[in-house]
Design a protein around this nucleic acid. Structure first.
Lengths: 315, 315
DNA sequence: GAACAACATAACCTGATGTTATGAAACTGG
DNA sequence: CCAGTTTCATAACATCAGGTTATGTTGTTC
C-alpha cells in the first residue's frame, strides 16, 4: 500500500504536539483539514491511529510507529527546504569558473579560497581556457563565469562583460635579480637574460612578443616555455630569467617576496581583465555571489595597486 | 519555503532511474504527470533541477541534493507501508491480554512465548483479573483478549466467548507426596494434610471450598493462601500441602516433574475456560492472530490431555 | 538527415485539501 | 453530578494539484 508522505507528516506533527488542534496550528493548517486528512489515512490503513474516545488525542501503537516515519519525512523535507534556501541565497551550489591560466592561478584561485571561507557549501569547478573557448563555454552552458582579458568590442551580444582591471603587464624577475639593482633599466640591459615564454597560443605570449618588439629587443632567447604559473615562478626564482606577467599577478605575489617587476615600462595591451557571464537568463545565485565577491576583491586590489604605485616602489 | 514531499519522491525516482519516463514507470504513474509535477517543483524553487537540453534528463547539483532528501522520504514511506503491512497481517502490534492469574501463569504465558517466536514484533501486555474486571476491560477498550473460566450464560451480549477447555479441577500435590502412593484416595485421607488456598476472591477459592464440601471434608486447615502460582508451586513442592488447581495447569507442568494430581475425582465447576473478545467492531489483526494461536494450542492441549487420560496415569 | 526516443504541452476530469460554520463528545472544576 | 470549556468531527463549498490520454517538440542516433 502506498501512503501519502504528507499524511505521515501530519501524524507526526499531531503526535508530537500532543493534540490535533496544536498539531494543525504548528503546520499552519486549519484543524478540520488535519482531522479529515488523518481520517482518510486511518480509513486507507483500515486501523485506528488514535485511541478512540480520548479527548487529548492519543496515538495507538500503530500511530506512534507511523509518526516515527512521519518525523523522518518532516526531517527530509526541512533539509530540502534548507538546501533550497542556501541555494537561492547563493550560499550553496556549483559555480564553474573558467579563465586564462595565469590569472586563475595567480589571482582568482586565492580569491576563491577566500570566498569559500564565507560560503563553504559553494563548490567551485575551475577550468582553464582562452577567450574563444571561454566564450563558447558560457554560450553552451558548461561555464558559469569566466575571468578573461578581453577587448570590450569583442564581447558577444549574448554575454555581459564586467571590466575589473585594466590590462597591464610588467617584466617580472626574481627578487634579487641583477637588474633590480639598477635605478633605470634600459632595453639593452635585458638582452643578455634568457626569457620564459608563456604557451605559444596564449595572449600573454603575444603580449610578450609585442612588448619586446616595442622596446626594440628584437633578438631574445627563450630558455623555457609552456609551463603553468607555478612552473614559471619556479624557473623564475631559480634563475635570472625574465618573463612578462600581468601586473596584478606579480602584485599578488609580493608577500612571498619571490618575484618582483622591473622598472621598465612596456606597452600595455588594449584589453581589460574582466568577468564574463551569460546575459539574459537567470543567474544562479551562487554564481552571482561569487561574481560580486571577485569584483569586490578586484576593486580592492585596484586600490591597493594604486596606493602602492604612489609609493613609487615600482614604476 | 515548504516543499511537497511527494515532489521530492518524484525527483529521487527520476534521478535514480536515469530518466523521467523510467522514473514515472517505477512509480506507477504516467510520464506527463511526473513531468508536470517536477515542472511545478522547479517553478516553486525558481531554479533548474535538470540540465536544460539534455535528453536523458540529467539533474543539476541542486537536483541531486534534493533527490537525496527525496530518497529519505521514499525510505520512510516504504518503512511506513511495511509497518502497516505487518500490522494488518497481525505480525506486529500490541495485544493486551488479561486473564485469571493461575491460568495466565500456568498456561497462557508459555503459549505467548511460543507465539512470539513466530511473531516477534507483536508486543503483549499481560494483566491479571477475574471475570468481572476482564469483562469491563474488554468493554471499555483497555483489553483486547481475556482468558477466563466462565459460564456461557454469563457472557455479555457485546462480547463473544470461545470455549477452549471444559472446567476441570484436580487436587494437586508434590510429586512423591504420601497420598500419591495409594491407589485410591479417600476423602478421609486428605483431612490430615494442610491446604494452600487461592486468593479468597478468586473463583478457584470457591471451587476449592465446594470441592472439599462435596467430598465431605468440612474441616480442613489452610496453611498458606493468597500467593500467585509461582508461590503456590513453591509451597506445594516444599511441603505435603494440597491445593486445587485446574487440570490444564497441572498437566502443563508435568515435564518439570514437580507437581502431580491425586486420584480423587472432585466436582468440576460448570464453567468453560474460554477466550473472551469484544464482538462487533473490527478486531486488531495481531489480536486475532494471537487468539487463533491460543485456541489452536488449547485444541492440541485438549487432545494431549485426552490421550494422557486414556493412558490411565491419572484418573 | 531520417528514424527514434524522451520529454513537454494540451485538455479534461477526479479527488484531495483548504476554508468557515457548526455539532458532538470528553474533560474540568466546583 | 452538572455546567462550562476544550477538543475533535462533520457539513458544505471552492480551489487546485495531479491523474489520465492524445499530441506536439526536441535531442540523440545511426
Amino acid at each position: 500500500m502506498k501512503l501519502d508522505p504528507r499524511h505521515l507528516e501530519l501524524l507526526a506533527a499531531v503526535v508530537d504536539h500532543g493534540g490535533l488542534t496544536e498539531g494543525a496550528a504548528a503546520l499552519g493548517k486549519s484543524q478540520p483539514s488535519v482531522s479529515r486528512s488523518l481520517g482518510q489515512l486511518e480509513a486507507r490503513i483500515g486501523a485506528p491511529l488514535f485511541q478512540p474516545g480520548r479527548r487529548p488525542l492519543q496515538a495507538t501503537e500503530l500511530g506512534l510507529a507511523l509518526a516515527e516515519q512521519g518525523r523522518a519525512v518532516l526531517k527530509a523535507d526541512r533539509a530540502a527546504s534548507q538546501i533550497v534556501a542556501l541555494y537561492r541565497s547563493g550560499h550553496a551550489g556549483l559555480v564553474r569558473v573558467g579563465g586564462t591560466p595565469v590569472f586563475m592561478d595567480g589571482v582568482i584561485a586565492g580569491m576563491i579560497a577566500e570566498f569559500q571561507q564565507a560560503c563553504p557549501d559553494v563548490r567551485v569547478d575551475q577550468s582553464y581556457g582562452y577567450a574563444d573557448e571561454l566564450i563558447e563555454g558560457l554560450g553552451n552552458g558548461t561555464l558559469d563565469l569566466a575571468v578573461v582579458p578581453l577587448r570590450p568590442e569583442k564581447v558577444p551580444a549574448s554575454l555581459q562583460f564586467q571590466p575589473i582591471l585594466p590590462g597591464l603587464n610588467v617584466i617580472a624577475c626574481r627578487v634579487g635579480h641583477p637588474l633590480t639593482r639598477r635605478k633605470l633599466v634600459t632595453p639593452g640591459d635585458i638582452a643578455e637574460f634568457p626569457w620564459i615564454a608563456p604557451p605559444a597560443n596564449s595572449p600573454l605570449y603575444a603580449d610578450l612578443r609585442r612588448a619586446l618588439t616595442d622596446i626594440g629587443a628584437e633578438d631574445f632567447k627563450i630558455s623555457f616555455s609552456g609551463g603553468s604559473l607555478a612552473s614559471v615562478i619556479s624557473v623564475l626564482t631559480g634563475s635570472d630569467s625574465l618573463t612578462v606577467l600581468p601586473y596584478s599577478v606579480v602584485f599578488m605575489m609580493r608577500p612571498q617576496k619571490m618575484v618582483t617587476a622591473l622598472s621598465l615600462r612596456i606597452g600595455h595591451p588594449d584589453r581589460n581583465l574582466g568577468l564574463l557571464m551569460a546575459a539574459g537568463g537567470p543567474v544562479p545565485p551562487a554564481t552571482a555571489r561569487l561574481r560580486s565577491f571577485v569584483a569586490a576583491r578586484f576593486e580592492a586590489l585596484a586600490r591597493r595597486i594604486v596606493a602602492h604605485q604612489t609609493n613609487q616602489l615600482w614604476r
